[in-house]
Write a protein that binds this DNA or RNA. Structure first.
Length: 295
DNA sequence: TTCAATGTTTAGAC
DNA sequence: GGTCTAAACATTGA
């Protein structure tokens, strides 16, 4: 389920608990999740053995994020990349606390039948759960191998970094005849947006998601640009939209879900103008918008 | 029973 | 080459 804010929140929450810890043991219950990405995965025993051999005894130095990927960096320079896709979830658990993120947790029992990998750390456990099993975990021997892999080649700018600037964004939009929503979902244009936040951004900018990109005015593009930054930052501050049973170290819950203006609200009234929100399919995804506020 | 679900890739048509 | 659609991955729940 996670989009950028959910992955970033998970990264921030997890880091203090796993940083400096060593992987003592790895149990792979679903080998296909570590063999490749979802499009080309093959069951492979040797991949599992390599994964276990290379990452056991490694000390976690840092967790970074690129687009919707989590990147575990080990002291040796080795890398573990995790993509949660639709329903992936990571849970850290020790004797006194549990930190989870990604797909909302329904089953607090760990491991459960959707647990596909278990890392035993020097203190506590890290579980990878995934209902639909679209996610994957990939090992890279070093940063260079990761960067030269096809994983990062196609990514556009990070929306919250200076790389993401209005000029490039405008050029990129104005060069396209495609519809706005599929374009914003395209990770080559800007990374991190998914179905929830694209709809929220379009609503913020008061622009219909089925507008042709080339038809956008400069002020409209500026609104989209600002909306992307504002909405993603706000969502990260609130720990994203996936908050069911999200347990932080201090026991607090956060949540952007209740700030959704359009996503998941088809048929309900617009919070601004009281008109009924409509829903259409764009790029194969359900899209909710206000026919009155958005033009 | 049928459909849709916070992601991404690929194949085929125009 | 660009862009659209549908399908694929696998499971759950309305």
């Amino acid at each position: 389920m996670p989009e950028l804010p959910e992955v970033e929140s998970l990264r921030q929450s997890l880091l203090p608990f796993v940083q400096g810890k060593t992987i003592k043991k790895i149990q792979i219950l679903k080998p296909k999740l570590i063999s490749s990405n979802s499009a080309t995965r093959i069951e492979s025993t040797s991949k599992s053995q390599e994964f276990i051999k290379e990452l056991t005894k490694e000390k976690i130095q840092d967790i970074q994020r690129r687009a919707k990927n989590l990147i575990f960096i080990f002291e040796s320079g080795k890398i573990l990349l995790i993509h949660l896709k639709m329903t992936g979830q990571l849970v850290y658990k020790n004797h006194q606390t549990q930190v989870a993120g990604g797909h909302p947790i329904h089953n607090l029992q760990l491991p459960n039948r959707h647990t596909h990998l278990i890392f035993t750390l020097s203190e506590g456990f890290l579980y990878y759960n995934d209902i639909r099993q679209f996610g994957y975990l990939l090992y890279f021997p070093n940063q260079k191998k990761l960067e030269s892999s096809n994983h990062f080649k196609l990514f556009g700018p990070e929306p919250l970094s200076p790389d993401f600037n209005l000029k490039k964004f405008s050029t990129s939009l104005l060069s396209k005849k495609a519809l706005l929503k599929p374009t914003l979902l395209d990770q080559k244009v800007v990374v991190g947006l998914g179905n929830i936040y694209v709809d929220e951004v379009c609503f913020y900018a008061k622009i219909l998601p089925n507008r042709i990109c080339q038809s956008l005015s400069r002020p409209e593009i500026k609104l989209l640009f600002d909306g992307i930054k504002k909405i993603l930052s706000r969502a990260i501050a609130l720990k994203g939209s996936t908050v069911a049973n999200y347990i932080l170290a201090d026991g607090s819950h956060g949540g952007y879900t209740k700030e959704h203006k359009v996503y998941g609200r088809s048929g309900k009234v617009c919070l601004v103008c009281n008109q009924t929100l409509k829903s259409i399919k764009l790029g194969g995804r359900t899209t909710v918008y206000c026919p009155n506020c958005q033009q």
